[in-house]
Amino acid sequence: MEKLTIGIVGFGVIGQRWTACFAHAGHAVRVFDPTERREAAFNEVLPALMADLDALKGSSPSPGEIHLFPTLAETLQGVDFVQENGPEDLALKRR
């Protein structure tokens, strides 16, 4: 399977789960969210998320790396795919 670089925009509950899923599949994941302290919350739930994915799909021999970036522009550099996870607010999504 080809390894991709995935951009995650929005790192709330859904974005965190997408991040774990892509990393579990071995893809590099670049994350952006304007809210502070999402990384600490994610680090607390990541072991349980990976354990759930292991139970569903088997262990990942080499999970992809996860990196958080302070800006959207930095996050999206070199990505192959973007998973947007913002609130269902059209004006916000357009910005």
Rank of each mutant, 00 (worst) to 15 (best):
M1F: 14
M1D: 14
E2Y: 12
E2G: 11
E2M: 15
E2A: 14
K3P: 06
L4G: 04
T5W: 03
T5N: 11
T5Y: 03
I6P: 01
I6E: 00
G7K: 00
G7H: 02
I8G: 00
I8R: 00
V9Y: 00
V9R: 00
V9P: 00
V9K: 00
G10N: 01
G12M: 01
G12R: 01
Q16F: 00
R17Y: 03
R17G: 04
W18R: 04
T19Y: 01
T19W: 00
A20V: 03
A20Y: 00
H24T: 12
H24D: 11
A25G: 14
H27R: 08
H27C: 06
V29C: 05
V29W: 01
R30P: 05
R30M: 12
F32S: 01
D33K: 00
P34L: 07
P34F: 07
T35H: 08
T35L: 10
R37F: 10
R38V: 09
R38Q: 11
E39P: 02
E39K: 06
A40H: 12
A40Q: 14
A40W: 09
A41R: 03
A41W: 02
F42I: 07
N43V: 06
N43F: 08
V45T: 10
L46N: 02
L46C: 04
A48K: 11
L49Q: 07
L49Y: 03
L49R: 02
L49A: 05
M50F: 09
M50P: 01
L53M: 12
D54G: 06
D54F: 06
A55K: 14
A55S: 15
A55C: 12
L56N: 14
K57G: 14
K57V: 15
S59Y: 01
P61W: 04
P61V: 07
G64K: 06
E65H: 13
E65M: 13
I66Y: 01
I66G: 01
H67S: 15
H67Q: 15
L68D: 04
L68Y: 07
F69G: 04
P70W: 04
P70A: 08
T71N: 07
T71H: 05
T71E: 07
A73Q: 10
A73D: 13
E74T: 13
E74Y: 09
T75S: 05
L76W: 05
L76D: 06
L76N: 08
L76F: 09
Q77W: 11
G78Y: 05
V79T: 09
V79F: 03
F81T: 13
V82G: 04
V82N: 03
E84F: 02
N85C: 06
P87Y: 13
P87S: 13
P87R: 12
L92Y: 11
L92P: 06
R94W: 10
R94K: 14
